[in-house]
Structures are given as structure tokens and as C-alpha cells.
């Protein structure tokens, strides 16, 4: 499996696409920073503005990157190469999913670290009401888990759709559909934010207590697991051309 990881990571991370995605994520995150600075917010509000910007970027970038990385595995025939090498389909799904999650981790933390550092330097870290751990590190990690759960739908879509272009288009459609669907659901049932996998970070913002955090982590992890099972179910049977 280690060989497959090395091969996959080389094919994924040593590409211009990752750099472009990273720059795009950083640019969108910087918009949040600029908004916060322009409004002369304090450190905490600036960070909140950056976090919101980064999360929006994260979902769109996840939709696009799953097309390049996972569906692209069919069209550039890397999936076929892995299977021909005797690595096994199950291992390929695991390695591809880990690689996608690793890339998404990069797209989340790097822009956030860069823009937050600039924001804190400008506004001053002393302005954080509860300290850096509670105001920055904890929400960053909690939101990371939530958005990973949200983007896991793109892992399954990536394995379901064999065309790179179609996957990118459909994933963006799915992103908007989920957004609109979640808003409508919320309009009819307000408490849906507590069990809808795509609104867990709103749940955390609305009711920031330990039980909400635990529930958000559990729902996100379960969502990730469900979509990984769907991805494996699809890939184990798919015809590789």
C-alpha cells in the first residue's frame, strides 16, 4: 500500500493543478481578510470573516478538485494503471480518498494560516476575547472536520462519474443543490441544522456547546464513512476502459 501511496501522492501533489487550487483558495481566503480589515474589525471578527471565506472556497475547490483528482483518475487512466499493477481496487479507493483529503487539508490550512497570521499581526492577537486556543484553533479544527464531511460527497461523485469535465460541472451543481436544499430544509425545519451533515458548522455557531461539537464531529465522520462506502461500492464493480 505504501508504494501505491507514493505513486498517488506524486501524481497528485506534483502538479500545477494543486498549486492553482491552493492559490485560488488563498485568494478567496484573502477576500475575507480584506473585508475584515476594511471594516476595521477586531482580531476575532477578522478571523471569523477569514474562516467563512475559506470555507466557501473550500467547498467550491473540493467540487472542482474531485473532478481533477478522482474522475481524472479514470480519464487519464491512472485508476487502470493502479489496478493493472495488482494494487487492488479497495486499496486504490482508500489511497485516492486519503490523497483527496490530504489535498483538501492543504487547501484549508495553508490559506487560513497565511491570512489569519496577517490578520492577527494587523489587528493584534491580544484583542482575542478568549485566547488563541478557544477563538482560533478550536473553531478551525471543528470547522475542518465539518467541511471534510461536507466535501466527502465529492469523493463519491468523483468515483461515480468517469468524465473529468462532467464531474466538475456536476459537483458544482451538487454544491449549489445542497446549499439551496439545506436552506429550504432550514426554512421548514429549523432544527435540521443539527442533523443535516451540510449544516454542522452552522449548528456549532448557533449552539456552541460540547454536545453540539461532539454531534457535529460524529455526523461529519459518519457522512465521510457513508460516501467512502458508496465510492468503494461503485469502484469495485466499475468497468475500467
Amino acid at each position: 500500500m505504501l508504494k501505491l501511496f507514493k505513486w498517488e501522492f506524486k501524481n497528485t501533489f506534483f502538479t500545477l493543478k494543486v498549486l492553482i487550487m491552493l492559490l485560488a483558495a488563498t485568494a478567496i481566503s484573502a477576500i475575507g481578510l480584506a473585508g475584515g480589515l476594511h471594516s476595521k474589525f477586531g482580531s476575532y471578527e477578522i478571523f471569523a470573516s477569514i474562516l467563512n471565506g475559506t470555507m466557501d472556497a473550500f467547498l467550491i475547490i473540493g467540487a472542482v478538485f474531485a473532478g481533477f483528482s478522482i474522475s481524472g483518475g479514470y480519464s487519464n487512466r491512472f485508476a487502470q494503471a493502479a489496478v493493472l499493477s495488482g494494487s487492488g481496487r479497495q486499496r486504490f479507493v482508500i489511497v485516492k480518498s486519503v490523497s483527496f483529503i490530504a489535498a483538501m487539508t492543504l487547501f484549508y490550512f495553508v490559506p487560513l494560516a497565511l491570512t489569519s497570521t496577517v490578520g492577527l499581526i494587523v489587528a493584534g492577537p491580544q484583542a482575542l476575547p478568549h485566547g488563541i486556543m478557544q477563538d482560533i484553533v478550536a473553531p478551525t479544527l471543528l470547522n475542518y472536520v465539518c467541511v471534510l464531511g461536507m466535501t466527502s460527497v465529492f469523493i463519491a461523485m468523483g468515483f461515480l462519474i468517469k468524465s473529468q469535465g462532467a464531474a466538475i460541472g456536476i459537483n458544482i451543481g451538487v454544491y449549489f443543490f445542497i446549499n439551496v436544499g439545506s436552506s429550504l430544509l432550514f426554512a421548514f425545519r429549523e432544527n435540521s441544522i443539527y442533523w443535516n451533515p451540510w449544516t454542522q458548522y452552522y449548528a456549532i455557531e448557533t449552539n456552541p456547546v460540547s454536545s453540539t461539537y461532539i454531534q457535529a464531529i460524529a455526523i461529519s465522520a459518519l457522512t465521510l464513512a457513508v460516501f467512502l462506502v458508496i465510492a468503494f461500492g461503485k469502484f469495485s464493480k466499475t468497468e475500467l476502459k
Binding site: 508504494k3 505513486w7 506524486k10 501524481n11 491512472f78 487502470q80 495488482g86
Partner: peptide, 30 residues
């Protein structure tokens, strides 16, 4: 299958790499 080498329909090549880098990338799988 790790004892098999195969070309099915067309070879799977890394278009933007030279021959040696294709070999080295493929080598990672094994």
C-alpha cells in the same frame, strides 16, 4: 497480478513526462 505486465488497448502513459520519468513514476507502483 504483480507478476504481470500488460498493455490493454493503449499503453497508459504520462504525456507530459519524458520516457525516463514515465519509467520512474511507473516504478513507484512496484
Amino acid at each position: 497480478r504483480q507478476k504481470i505486465g500488460a498493455i490493454v488497448e493503449n499503453p497508459i502513459l504520462y504525456q507530459n513526462k519524458n520516457a525516463m520519468n514515465n519509467m520512474l513514476t511507473q516504478g513507484l507502483l512496484y
